[in-house]
Design a protein around this nucleic acid. Sequence first.
DNA 1: TTGTAGGCGTTATCAT
DNA 2: ATGATAACGCCTACAA
Lengths: 367, 367
Amino acid sequence: MISNRRQMIISITGANAYIARQGMDINASMSKKTITIKDIARALNVSVATVSRALRNSEEIKKETKLAVLQMAKEMDYHPNLLASSLSSKKSKILGVVVPTINRQFWSNAISGIENIAYHEGYKVMIFQSAESYKKEVEIVEILANSRVDGILMAYSQETVDFCHIQHVMDRGIPVHLFERVCEELQTSKVVTDNFGGAKQIVQHLVDRGYKNIAYLAGPLSLNVCKERYQGYQSALAENGLIASEDLLVEIPEFSYENAAQALMGLWKKETPPDALFCFADILAIGVLHAAREGGIKVPARLAIAGFGNDDIGKFVTPSITTMAQPSFEMGQTAARMLLEEINSEEETFVYQTETILPQLVVRESS
Amino acid sequence: MISNRRQMIISITGANAYIARQGMDINASMSKKTITIKDIARALNVSVATVSRALRNSEEIKKETKLAVLQMAKEMDYHPNLLASSLSSKKSKILGVVVPTINRQFWSNAISGIENIAYHEGYKVMIFQSAESYKKEVEIVEILANSRVDGILMAYSQETVDFCHIQHVMDRGIPVHLFERVCEELQTSKVVTDNFGGAKQIVQHLVDRGYKNIAYLAGPLSLNVCKERYQGYQSALAENGLIASEDLLVEIPEFSYENAAQALMGLWKKETPPDALFCFADILAIGVLHAAREGGIKVPARLAIAGFGNDDIGKFVTPSITTMAQPSFEMGQTAARMLLEEINSEEETFVYQTETILPQLVVRESS
DNA sequence: TTGTAGGCGTTATCAT
DNA sequence: ATGATAACGCCTACAA
């Protein structure tokens, strides 16, 4: 445990240097008066308007004055106050992001993609996690709107069935784009995975491999993602003359290794346990795989496992997990790009689009 | 590809309802005049000060007026403008976060912990990734300072050897707390892992298991974390009469599975390849494990592997990875708590502390 | 307990 | 090309 007392660092540079030259008492000014465009204007004997224009590199300003302002700004160690700028210009250059959680790979990757694009376009990113709570989500959306973010990217919580809070901020004039978890009720741009097609494809793959009694381990079917993959699963089975019995559907309330493990145990106790298991997400597939090994169930001999998402982890476990690759980073980028496009669009009638990302089948050892 | 035209949703509720009742023309007010405390004041025939106080639940206000204001605010669909509030109060209630990347588990967990605490304390979080670039980091720090964040949490980039940019924002009066990646030069609070002790412990474990030729796969030794774990490694070897030969140190420029795999290949070509490999982070351990399997190297029979961090992945691979558990989520929480403590501290002389988190040895199959 | 009025630091609209 | 000046929406002494 090392601890230091805060130290007053006295340096005759930057702002203080300027003040010193003006003949002011340094000690009296230790409250560190922050330099504003007003100070620059006074020092240069021009108006604040001129300074403001010069700093924002406006065309309608003489080159020399612009240079003079820039130089004086540096000399006085001036730093713009973005709060004031935002208040005045009505543009905060902030994007709001709402995700269920930050610490699952899909979401952190998506956030990374969002930040990546935002940064390059000069936008900051404000991030919140709803923790799958509707109540929290409502609060968050309100906070973001009140913070005057220029737009919101969100994947709503699994509790969310009412979308008034989202509609409400849209009515306030704030563009909202949905990604991954979307709904029909809202007129927004959306970035989604082809869940139906993806699920169908991977289940077809299982069928092709000879598996006949394929179970689906789902998250809450109230979420479009979960339901769509379920429908893809059903469709694939139907096309192959197989039935998706109720018995083979397990819906878990929360995504975790443990819940997946439990689900497997439950399935295994049935009269006719499945010979393959399609999991809504890789995290579940991993949990199942782990439980299978502990239970002495050979994978893929007695049980094939397939996931969805292509988290890093699936590649390195033994046996490695067959999955549908979802480019989460790129999804974040796409969502951010589309949102910025709407923000920067002049027209009143922005055309909302739904961008569908096609996942890729990655066949590995688990099937 | 579904696409919809933006729709004007006309509803006689909220703000418009109020305006309608006032006899104003709805169509003329479609520009959605945002309601301010001024409007509430006018409607209630009180001053803006009263409204402001009532909304902030000030003590010095009569209960009835407070209620009246609150009710009218709701009726008029009032939403506070946090930008204006921040500008005026000089508190933005925003925390800035700078990390190398969001999409590695350690960092996303830490961010999650930070957001978690921040949210509960009424703070928003603005997140940036430096991508290990010094130049970008300098820009980011400037942006955060200009955004008037109330404090900054950061883990600097691996390129960063000069800390003036950080000192500069501190001089501007913005508290900065360092976590995980810290340096001696800066007088700030810090949250660190006991890297020396942790590395020593896990290497001692390897020695105890009978391994004698233990290599260290490091990240850039310019980072304190990498160096400290190196020193712990050296110390453990020394105490056991073993030598940490230069030959057994591999420094990779960037954290990736691939680089780790390459490093193993390099080591394996040596006259006397190592019999154990301590990796700076789990991600490297996984890369090495994967390469070992492909190269037919039995783990742990011919090569023991140990990591650091306890990412989820290490638990599920075969053989599972021995590692030092680093509670990243809690580190984020701790860092956030300490920063908020400084922000909320009245005193001029805040006592900077260094919080050291002890990692836990997790022995698994790879050793 | 409530009101008045002057900021907070920029931007934007008119003039000149 | 530059200047005055009024917003932007809220907070906070200081008065009353």
